[in-house]
Write a protein that binds this DNA or RNA. Structure first.
Length: 574
RNA sequence: GGGCGUGUGGCCUAGCCUGGAUAAGGCACCGGCCUUCUAAGUCGGUAAUCGCGGGUUCGAAUCCCGCCACGUCCGCCA
């Protein structure tokens, strides 16, 4: 247990005892009062009708009954609140010790003995990743990191669509179009080279029924399990998938397992799904096709039929997704999916089907709104896109300009390039993760390349400052004397550091990765205030100097660990 | 037509789940701070009827109802 947890527990248990002695049982919710009014507050308003006294009288009464302890130094009643002041020395001492001992695992929570599968990205392998969907891998990977830190055993999965029309179109293009007719791409990456085949094939399919027929033939053969077709499809999309993996790797994202959709055709599990769904009382038949009537499950609208089997006996995307989830449910205790908001209905259909099939573990889904362009949605088909690779390059290039502006005559070219890479990649991830997934983002280069204010260089710079101070001392031992750290900036900073584990818990429990980004920004901000107020290296009192050094070291650790949760590197200088 | 999501100073965002003290940050704008650990920093200022209208409550940005705007979905596509 972390120091702040102990402290909160002590306060809650004291209030609990007092309420019990007044024969009141209720959930104790303590909050954080504004600035100088204490560390924790207990509002007494809800007790007023029960005790038939004014909130302030109750607060006064409770505050006299709370006994001072190792954690509680002062209690005040004010405006209906019981304000509790905690023992700063105690918190500083235990928190610093905890951080400096645990180092790279400070903030991490105790092991849960639970397996989590986080499915993210799962993009069609028919072209490069574009910015419209870039939230997916970034949210997904950040959650992977947060859940690991929160003590879970985590596996990331990419559900690979090797059965659908999109890959069939690509495969048809690769096998039937001549290279000279494909518009050349600006990069040599395979995913960029191949997307032209998809785009042209897609156009031709619309105008020539013969081509459309050939493509749907491919789809049928795939579902029939025709090995030659499977190989042909695989050969077509493999280079694209490789390109996607490379892009992800550039932004520090690794996916543990790729699960091809075809898996569930070949292992016959899809047949069990169909059989199971047909047996439910909600199944209906229409022209030899089968669907679940979604009306009883709260789906209303023009069409409430969820078709899971076509009249030609072939399955649909959602049907295969059900088989995938049934399988996943056997592999893990918690399932999390990262999906675009356009998948809301499909996801609901899958959930209903899983319930009908009596599957115990249902996925928790994080939906994100699209990143669109000022004129509207991005589209690979229409070529109206900003590719992730372009954005990565631009971010790094922009970072390089900024580094050079400041450090041109101090650093070597390769040092500047190295730093620019860390800032550029970090900037990309940070700008996306700092906003709640459900908010729309309209992509502008100006915003994407924003390095001012609440942006990653602010956090990285604070880390670099801490490193810079630490690099100037020879003794690396952390000796500190907590009672000396009495400056307001020192106390604010260490309290912020003490909150880190609770932030991880919150971000994990609620699947809200943006909490970590905001926390880091605040932490960097209070560190900068400390930096301004409390000179470290030139402090003459030796013990205070080393105590401040320990605090700087602890801040460095927290910023580093926090950035790590976001998949962002922390440069030691910039 | 129906479902889901979003709406907070000129712009962007946090807070909403779990109601509580003066609505918190950033950008932009105005004015200060580098002979001291990197000024990618810091201090101060201007700026918000929290989309609109009702309701619940001692108390509503937060909960409930209605409306408006934007996004998204309602295919034997994926």
């Amino acid at each position: 247990m972390y120091p702040l947890d102990e402290c909160k527990k002590e306060i809650i248990s004291q209030i609990q005892k007092i309420l019990v002695s007044h024969k009141i049982t209720c959930e104790i919710k303590i909050e954080i009062p504004p600035d100088t009014m204490g560390d924790f507050a207990f509002p007494c308003f809800q007790l007023a009708p029960l005790l038939k006294k004014s909130p302030n009288d109750i607060a006064k009464e409770i505050s006299t009954e709370i006994s001072k302890s190792i954690w509680i130094t002062k209690v005040e009643a004010k405006g209906g609140y019981v304000n509790v002041f905690i023992n700063n020395t105690q918190l500083i001492s235990l928190t610093l010790r905890s951080i400096l001992e645990k180092k790279e695992i400070y903030g991490h929570l105790k092991k849960q003995k639970k397996k989590v599968i986080i499915e993210h990205t799962s993009a069609n392998p028919n072209g490069p990743l574009h910015v419209g969907r870039a939230r997916n891998p970034i949210i997904g990977d950040t959650l992977v990191r947060i859940f690991k830190a929160a003590g879970y055993d985590v596996e990331s999965q990419f559900y690979l669509d090797d059965m659908g029309k999109q890959v069939a179109i690509l495969a048809w293009g690769v096998n039937n179009l001549e290279q000279k007719n494909i518009p050349s791409s600006t990069t040599i990456k395979a995913d960029h080279q191949m997307v032209g085949y998809y785009q042209i094939a897609n156009e031709q399919m619309k105008t020539e029924p013969r081509i459309a027929e050939q493509i749907s033939d491919i789809v049928k053969k795939l579902e029939g399990g025709d090995h030659k077709t499977i190989e042909m499809i695989h050969a077509s999309y493999a280079p694209v998938l490789e390109g996607i993996k490379q892009s992800l790797q550039r932004i520090n994202i690794h996916i543990d397992t790729f699960i091809p959709e075809s898996t569930f055709i070949y292992d016959k599990s899809i047949e069990r799904v169909i059989k199971g769904l047909k047996q439910t009382p909600y199944c209906r038949e229409q022209d030899a096709a089968f669907y679940i009537d979604m009306e009883p499950f709260g789906i209303h609208g023009r069409n409430t039929k969820f078709f899971f089997l076509r009249s030609d006996g072939t399955t649909l995307y959602a049907t295969r997704d059900i088989a995938y989830h049934q399988w996943k449910a056997q592999q893990a205790d918690i399932l999390i999916n990262i999906l675009g908001e356009d998948h809301k209905l499909e996801s609901k259909q899958v959930k209903v089907a899983l319930e009908l099939l009596k599957v115990k573990i249902l996925p928790q889904v994080v939906f994100y709104a699209f990143v669109s362009l000022p004129g509207g949605k991005m589209s690979t088909r229409r070529g109206r896109v900003v590719y992730l690779d372009e954005l990565i390059d631009e971010c790094i290039e922009h970072a390089y300009e900024e580094v050079r502006k400041r450090r041109d005559n101090e650093l070597t070219e390769s040092q500047m390039r190295k730093i620019a890479e860390l800032i550029g990649i970090g900037s990309l991830r940070y700008n996306i993760i700092k906003v709640q997934p459900e908010k729309d983002i309209i992509f502008t280069w100006e915003e994407a390349l924003n390095f001012e204010g609440n942006a990653v260089p602010f956090v990285q710079y604070a880390h670099a400052r801490a490193c810079s101070i630490l690099s100037k001392i020879s003794i690396k031992e952390d000796t500190f004397h907590a009672p000396l750290l009495t400056n307001h900036s020192e106390i604010t900073l260490i309290k912020k550091l003490a909150w880190f584990p609770l932030m991880i818990e919150d971000a994990c429990n609620n699947c809200k990765p943006h909490i970590i980004a905001n926390y880091l920004f605040e932490t960097a901000s209070v560190f900068n205030q400390f930096y301004r107020d409390c000179p470290v290296l030139c402090e003459e009192n030796e013990l205070l100097r080393s105590s401040r050094l320990a605090l700087v070291h602890a801040t460095k650790i927290v910023l580093y660990n926090g950035l790590e949760l976001l998949g962002i590197s922390a440069p030691t200088e910039m």
